[in-house]
Design a protein around this nucleic acid. Structure first.
Lengths: 335, 335
DNA sequence: TTGAAAGCGCTAACAC
DNA sequence: GTGTTAGCGCTTTCAA
């Protein structure tokens, strides 16, 4: 180890710049020279020193990822975002530096310290305090989620409003007239995590336009939370026949509680789950659902970030169109 | 931005080395000088360039973490390891570079490229192909888990063998004479992920020594898997009264299935869960359990890694002693 | 098609 | 207690 580019140059009988150019491909190299250099690199097991490279080229080949590592929410979805980001980053020859969401200072640290070429930030809230920080940085940033004011920042997310509408439309088509949304925990709503609000807005608007009776209930991510939410729904809308669930953790308990209260899915109640496909399929009864394509969102975030390093393309916001997949949990309403 | 150490030096009317030494504390600085420098740093919003620093000092202040980002296993536990590692790393003024387990080449890339000061690798298997790679690196590495041959590498883990024994001993003390282990998925066992084997060994040995009838059943991480495992247990040991479950995902379904088969927990069957405390407590019935202190293990891994960067201390293996916490799922056996 | 050499921003001797 | 300066290993003009 500790081989440097000069060692390689010497071994290959060329100058250091030639080695550099063989590596970067930024200028044409004759076949024989290239081969001698490549051979020397292999023989010596040479790897360029990342720090030296970053210093000289102002590119770190590292992507900063700020992820919420709390254990409370839907760990699964987070994991899928992360794998999406890491996989995509690798395909751009970048590694991923992991920052936790509780550390706003981390953004400045890694950005001002030139540790990263770009940043991706998950789990953005409407008035996220980290957003103004991001705006001031030299590196491009991509948000997963939608802040109230994305001034100059790129954003990606599922179009949750359309997702809410899509779910309701599906139920309406099946003839359901009384629908409920069992949603995110109250704390999430109060944090104004925008996806929860957008979901709710879409659900409510579409139900209104379709002339459906509709109720919305927040739901804690636990068995107890699910039981409570279901009971509140049944109290407010006793003859509910269509339910949209937007809470991965509560999902199985919601279905179980309805059954426990004598409303079986899908005979008595149709359920549309808004969650990653594997969660919907992994349930005892495969659930009709609007997919949250976490992996894809992560990948798109990276693509958008990479498109902006070096080039100064303008920021853009991309909302992915939701897709509903029919499985076993929805049926035409009984008349 | 783009302020350099020279800008700071100029602004403070000192030499660059003085600024450097103020920053590193590696030599005494008079109070007035220090203040002028600190003021200049603040005024200019100066941050040292990470690459330059790494180049000059051979320290990156980055820790490599290789985590298994598959969604199949106990995502929760993984998350806890990761937060433990990240938090601890920050307390040593290090950031974390995330590598996925499927990319053995990543180890060489970040190590030989001098991107990290040390490496932590989760989810080690008995004959892990990544272990020999790790041995050849310049940087110290710490494994979470126990390979068959840890030649020169540091390892941390829960002492799963002791955990198995502890769980059995607890059941035996309560008078249970027929016990079962509902364990890891067959695939995990076949991968020889050492923790599963160690757990099994401890369980089996202690049961034998205590003269208990004991069966072991692997269990897939799903509802169906849990049902299957429970039924196989009941077939092989119909009057089982004590069950150790070592599978976070299957846990709730195992308990539910026993109830479904007319064996209620804890009236008819006592259950000891081997899992992180929050999982045990989050169940409908709080489960007696042997904690998997994931967060703590992550922290210890970082401490061991940091202890070895720079200094060339010898590798060590640390097995954390298991702790059993009695909750509501175990009772004296009926006679 | 290739080489020489000037930095990139910082650390750590080595002076004083 | 502070300053000078030679690198650290690489990229990238500028020349040939």
């Amino acid at each position: 180890m500790a081989t440097t580019i000069d060692d390689v140059a010497r071994a290959a009988g060329v100058s250091t710049s030639t080695v550099s150019y063989v590596l970067s491909g930024k200028r044409p190299i004759s076949a024989p020279t290239r081969q001698r250099v490549e051979r020397a690199i292999r023989d010596l097991g040479y790897r360029p020193h990342a720090g030296a490279r970053a210093l000289a080229s102002a590119r770190t080949h590292v992507l900063g990822l700020m992820a919420p590592l709390r254990v409370d929410v839907n760990v699964n979805v987070i994991m899928q975002f992360v794998t999406g980001v890491v996989t995509a980053a690798r395909s751009y020859d970048h590694d991923v530096l992991l920052l936790t969401a509780d550390e706003t200072a981390g953004l400045e640290r890694v950005a001002s310290g030139s540790m990263v070429d770009a940043l991706v930030m998950m789990d953005v809230e409407a008035d996220d305090p980290r957003v103004p920080v991001l705006v001031g940085l030299r590196q491009p940033a991509v948000l997963i989620g939608l802040p109230r004011d994305p001034e100059g920042l790129s954003c990606v997310d599922l179009d949750f409003e359309a997702a809410g509408r899509l779910a309701v439309r599906h139920l309406a088509r099946l003839g359901h007239r009384r629908v409920a949304l069992v949603g995110s925990p109250r704390a999430v709503l109060e944090r104004h995590t925008s996806y929860a609000e957008r979901m709710m807005r879409g659900f409510t608007a579409e139900a209104a336009e379709a002339g459906l009776a509709a109720v919305v209930e927040p739901c804690e991510s636990s068995m107890a939370g699910a039981v409570g939410a279901v009971d509140r729904v049944l109290e407010r809308l006793p003859d509910v026949t269509g339910v949209v669930v937007h809470n991965e953790v509560a999902l199985p308990w919601v279905v179980a509680t309805f059954a426990d209260r004598g409303r079986h899915v899908p005979e008595d109640v149709s359920v549309v789950a808004v969650c990653p496909p594997d969660v919907a399929v992994g349930q005892p009864l495969p659930l009709t659902g609007v997919d949250i394509p976490a992996h894809a969102i992560g990948r798109v975030a990276v693509e958008m970030a990479m498109a902006r390093v070096g080039h100064d393309e303008p920021a853009e916001t991309r909302l992915l169109a939701p897709v509903l997949v029919e499985r076993a949990s929805t049926r035409p309403a009984l008349r």
